[in-house]
């Protein structure tokens, strides 16, 4: 039990650190003022990775098998794809 929770703590802390780092990368890209389709899609990709990390490690869906592993992945994929298409068409 202790080993289980210690692993959980370590994983959550590592994911937390990654989320903070990716957030700062996103922020500094915004602050740089550069704008292009590639940069926008890179920022979106970072957001989708962050979303998957939250779903898998914070929401606890990472170790689940079957249907309930899918909702967050699908949620990230569908609007992620639509946003990509919209930004591509407007570039």
């Amino acid at each position: 039990m202790d080993t289980f929770t210690n692993k959980g703590k370590r994983a959550a802390t590592i994911v937390f650190a990654i989320l903070i780092i990716l957030t700062f990368i996103t922020f500094f890209i915004g602050e740089s003022g550069t704008s292009s389709l590639t940069i926008s899609l890179f920022v979106l990709a970072l957001a989708l990775i962050k979303g998957e990390l939250v779903g898998a490690y914070f929401m606890g869906l990472g170790g689940i098998r079957g249907f309930w592993r899918l909702p967050i992945l699908i949620w990230l994929f569908i609007p992620g794809s639509l946003i990509t298409i919209a930004f591509y068409l407007s570039a």
């Binding site: 957030t23 915004g30 926008s40 970072l46 957001a47 989708l48 979303g51």
Partner: peptide, 11 residues
Amino acid sequence: LILFPLIYVMR
């Protein structure tokens, strides 16, 4: 996490 880049950063 999606709202932040979409509204504040992506352009």
